[in-house]
């Protein structure tokens, strides 16, 4: 058994994103996300008028923060964080108060009507634990998403973060988001 410390994260090269939404569809299929709810999505920010026109696509989802405010506010401990950084909801302890949804700066969670609990991106931990990559990462045709372990110096993710300029979203909330957007 490998007991090396892990810290999973995503690097997102949003300049490569073509807004095809394959990641969204793959996620919905992989995780059985209900109609009307999303665990990931793409924002389209259009600026200017033709011909001086620009549009930015940015994939969004749970940032699996270092200090997740959703975990802090959860009154029952149903929202929790694995040692490898993945933020999950333990459904059996979730009472459906939705405090975590209110507390998430990225609005990354949704209320699952059928079970009365809160659902969110699991970073496809069921796949990751088998050595695979998350469904959104695997499916992306333009290779926007790079999944990896921050503690692993040989990973592609590590190389990208070492060599490319990048930023995280809303660091001022103090959550320590772990989705790195390349500039």
């Amino acid at each position: 058994m490998d007991i090396r410390k892990r810290r999973y994260a995503l690097v997102i090269d949003s300049r490569k994103c073509i807004n095809c939404k394959a990641c969204v569809v793959a996620c919905k299929a992989e995780n059985g996300v209900p109609i009307g709810n999303f665990r990931n999505w793409i924002t389209a920010d259009r600026q200017g008028e033709y011909p001086k026109l620009r549009i930015d696509f940015e994939p969004e989802q749970c940032h699996h923060c270092e200090h997740p405010s959703c975990v802090r506010v959860c009154p029952t401990g149903a929202s929790w964080q694995r040692k490898d950084g993945v933020v999950l909801v333990y459904a059996d302890d979730c009472i459906g108060c939705r405090y975590c949804m209110v507390a998430c700066p990225y609005d990354a969670r949704y209320f699952h009507e059928e079970s009365g609990t809160v659902h969110k991106c699991t970073l496809c931990s069921h796949r990751v634990d088998k050595g695979e990559v998350p469904a959104c990462v695997e499916t992306c045709p333009s290779k926007v998403r790079v999944f990896g372990d921050l503690e692993d110096p040989s990973s592609r993710l590590h190389e990208l973060l070492a060599t490319r300029r990048h930023h995280v979203k809303e660091p001022q909330t103090g959550n320590g988001p772990q989705l790195y957007y390349l500039l």
Binding site: R72, C74, P75, D93, C94, I95, G96, R98, S115
Partner: peptide, 26 residues
């Protein structure tokens, strides 16, 4: 009644999380 699973409200009292205002509040 506003909870997604109202019958699980007892879990508020079986877990104490001092960091959560809702836990202290209940």
């Amino acid at each position: 009644l506003d909870l997604g699973n109202w019958y699980r409200f007892y879990k508020l009292f079986t877990h104490f999380r001092w960091e959560s205002p809702m836990s202290i509040g209940s």
